[in-house]
Deep mutational scan, measured.
Amino acid sequence: MSRESDVEAQQSHGSSACSQPHGSVTQSQGSSSQSQGISSSSTSTMPNSSQSSHSSSGTLSSLETVSTQELYSIPEDQEPEDQEPEEPTPAPWARLWALQDGFANLECVNDNYWFGRDKSCEYCFDEPLLKRTDKYRTYSKKHFRIFREVGPKNSYIAYIEDHSGNGTFVNTELVGKGKRRPLNNNSEIALSLSRNKVFVFFDLTVDDQSVYPKALRDEYIMSKTLGSGACGEVKLAFERKTCKKVAIKIISKRKFAIGSAREADPALNVETEIEILKKLNHPCIIKIKNFFDAEDYYIVLELMEGGELFDKVVGNKRLKEATCKLYFYQMLLAVQYLHENGIIHRDLKPENVLLSSQEEDCLIKITDFGHSKILGETSLMRTLCGTPTYLAPEVLVSVGTAGYNRAVDCWSLGVILFICLSGYPPFSEHRTQVSLKDQITSGKYNFIPEVWAEVSEKALDLVKKLLVVDPKARFTTEEALRHPWLQDEDMKRKFQDLLSEENESTALPQVL
């Protein structure tokens, strides 16, 4: 008996699950189920560990084997000379395990699969056993689809999209007709009724959600790893209520002995410091949205989908001078704002400069500016000194954290500008005749005249004003913003236009 009217009423009120309206889709043409990776026989039982391990490696599972009696060998002398080797079968990115008779397991190899009674669906509900069930008529011709799209860092995100009359449910929550939600590992998919569980979705590319604290899981769906560094790992996640993407940084307390840091400095109150950081608001710094204190720290951040500045300059790639100017102007505005709010970044580098898009002209935002507030000064500097390429001379020669101030950030900005303009770092371990530390503390950077011949004198002058060993003589952010190279009204107008595109209400910060 159909429950279409009941569920449609529920759909009209929406769902609290991570779902959002989605535009129309072009329906895929039908194809045989076997060619799409559906096993030839149905099963109602969950797999054992041996079955799972075989399939996850990209080899055929026991459900897909063919009797050897149906095959015969071709003698080598009868092999056609022009026969080309077969292409290897792509490894599946996800697996659906059937929970009921009449449904088959599915190895997801393609990027898009339609499910329903219509014969054009890649996964067609046409098993005779299924057709005899009382629920068969409640399934729509095109009930739902599972697909994946390219996300940040060229990774993939799996989604389920509801197109049914009676509802598609993920972990008992209604997706909603015309809406989608991301699928995470071990999600249970039910059709027409929330208790009519048909599939379990296994994402073969992500970790299980159960490793994360419950308070975090209640608000966010964790997904793929976006990156990792000395101070922690960053994962893509989704807000459950809105389906908006965020980035979540995970900082290990054990790695940084944060408990010991608190004992050594009783004034170090991470929760208080995070609340201060959350109040920071500038178009060129990453917004801190939320914070969870569990076995590790979880910092929920605004997501930038254009990648890191590092990706644009790695491998001796240089940027156009006009692009360097647009990016560097924004970096200076961001660091100036942090300094005005009493925050020294201490870890400025291309990896911590994020881009809003893949376009050459785009907004940038500074991230990882609050680590000293979370990890403690000593722990952070011990970590950073392991990779000193961007560290100021006074940091390398000081004991502990004494003896330096916000000028350290201006040195790091000078190193970043040098790399963007030239395509190579000013200080490098590859210069074996002088140690990296000695290069930095003496201010002897690697200047290649033929490379810098293409760079304007004004740009080079600003680099020199920032890479000054004496912090008292080094340019401040205010002085850098007043430098002739940055007195470019076309560049500032472009920045204002980019801000307006992102948010019509965002105004250009005042600069002296």
Rank of each mutant, 00 (worst) to 15 (best):
G178F: 03
D111K: 09
R132L: 14
V175F: 06
S32P: 06
F256L: 14
A261W: 04
P90K: 06
S140Y: 01
S210P: 04
T65F: 08
G151T: 15
A91R: 07
V25T: 08
L183I: 01
S28R: 07
Q34S: 11
Q209L: 15
S2M: 07
S53Q: 02
E8D: 10
L96S: 03
F103E: 09
P152H: 09
E84T: 08
N186Y: 03
A9Q: 09
V234A: 07
T172V: 13
R181H: 10
G176H: 05
V66K: 04
Q10G: 12
K255D: 00
Q83W: 11
N166Q: 04
D77T: 05
A94Q: 00
S120N: 08
W114D: 14
S39D: 06
G102F: 15
S260I: 09
Y113P: 01
H143P: 03
S57G: 13
L183Y: 05
S33A: 11
Y139I: 01
T133D: 15
A267K: 13
N166E: 02
E173T: 02
K255T: 05
K177T: 07
D6A: 11
T68R: 03
H13E: 07
Y159I: 13
L130S: 04
N184P: 01
A17I: 06
G151C: 11
N171I: 08
Q100G: 10
Q11R: 09
K245W: 15
D218A: 12
Q27Y: 07
I258S: 04
A237M: 04
C243V: 05
D162H: 05
I160W: 14
L130T: 14
V170K: 13
D101F: 15
H54Y: 12
Q100M: 15
V211F: 08
V246L: 04
T172W: 06
W93A: 02
E127F: 06
K141D: 00
G30A: 11
K241N: 14
D6P: 12
E4L: 07
Y212I: 02
I221D: 04
N48F: 10
E122S: 09
L268V: 04
S120W: 14
K177P: 06
G151R: 06
L130D: 09
G259K: 13
L216M: 01
A17R: 13
D77R: 04
E127V: 11
S19N: 04
E81Y: 02
S28N: 08
A215S: 02
R262Q: 15
S67D: 10
N105I: 13
R95V: 00
S42C: 09
S155E: 04
V66R: 04
E271P: 08
E81M: 10
V198Q: 15
K253T: 02
A190S: 06
K153T: 14
T89R: 06
Y113Q: 10
D82H: 14
C121L: 09
S73L: 15
